[in-house]
Design a protein around this nucleic acid. Sequence first.
DNA 1: TGTACATCAGTGAACGCGCGTTCACTGATGTAC
DNA 2: TGTACATCAGTGAACGCGCGTTCACTGATGTAC
Lengths: 205, 205
Amino acid sequence: MAEGGPGRATRIRNRWGEGERLRLEILEAASRLLSELDGDDGLSLRAVARATGIAPASVYQHFSDRDALMDGLLAHECRRLAAVLEDARLAAPPDDPLGQLRAQLHAYCEFATANPGHHRVLFRRGPGSTEGRHGPLRDITSAFAAACERCARAGYTLRLPGGRAGVVVFVAAHGRVALFHSNPTERNASLLRPFVEELISLVVE
Amino acid sequence: MAEGGPGRATRIRNRWGEGERLRLEILEAASRLLSELDGDDGLSLRAVARATGIAPASVYQHFSDRDALMDGLLAHECRRLAAVLEDARLAAPPDDPLGQLRAQLHAYCEFATANPGHHRVLFRRGPGSTEGRHGPLRDITSAFAAACERCARAGYTLRLPGGRAGVVVFVAAHGRVALFHSNPTERNASLLRPFVEELISLVVE
DNA sequence: TGTACATCAGTGAACGCGCGTTCACTGATGTAC
DNA sequence: TGTACATCAGTGAACGCGCGTTCACTGATGTAC
């Protein structure tokens, strides 16, 4: 073993024909690592390999280089966040679109504050190549825009046209989260809920 | 010379008793480097030394280690941003507090979009030690809160109490800037002005 | 059934690189006597 | 005035480290005949 020290998990190799499983194992290990790191510094290819319990060279069977690994991780985290938002919407009453918007905003803030590393990976500048690679932004903003349009159809009066209210409210929550992460004195998750309520009060009625 | 290659500027050493000058030269070189890097990756102690035109070891005469250098750079950039905001306020008519608020918001966005690296350094998680080290946040938010309170005193009706309007408006602009930096499709500075106007329209009157 | 070969999942060791940091030093400029 | 010494600004070379990446390999499992 190249590195058998602490942190190197023991692992039984996948069976013949099941090598593709390792790809997901790597992404899940990287995701786990992000939770422990609370930031994305130190998220090296070698660290991911250690967390997965494999040799660094083995990563190259599934990702052509470090950038490809990070792109894969970005896509993985995009799916996770999209699921969180969809779950929040489904958990709110189906006939309460404002409640759904509120629930999704709170879910976003909770995800972002509880998972600093994941949030960082989702919203950071990617490695050069714009090709075929895009963050979670388009899906998220359109989700919030749609939520606001449902509110408008249900009779709420919004103070911005079309989906703009949703965009503004999400962007503002994103800004609050960014400050939560960047400033030690702002790292208090209980301040996020009232902030979100303020935002909603600005935009609706 | 340890590294005489390209990037190493020629430099005449400071005169006897003027060694303190180098401290500022280092910070200014680091700041210049941030402009070229448009991000804070690659902002190593050695890269700063190269940009300053000195040997890496010489940095240690003014900063005890890399973290101290970064703290010094943070303070340096805080002063720059504070000056930008103050200049914007002074450039607006003294009897137009709403114009001052608007000017400061636009100035913030312009600084942040034109200086990605500087913005990143200002709003990122610092090196562990919270002691004696704080970002520009407190000064900025209180500046915007004060701007909003001036508006209220001048007769404008704000839809949030006290300085909250200023805080919300700044946080939302910060969120918009963060997306500008994180998402290639959002890197269009001309979209920031209408966004700021939307924010102001939400909060005032 | 046996056996030669192909394919698979993954490894171990090495490479060159830039990094942060240390340490003894160099040469110029000041000061004490 | 000269001279020994102290202080100053800054250097050069080396250290150990973790990194991304490459390459020939190993051992197990499948397949063709």
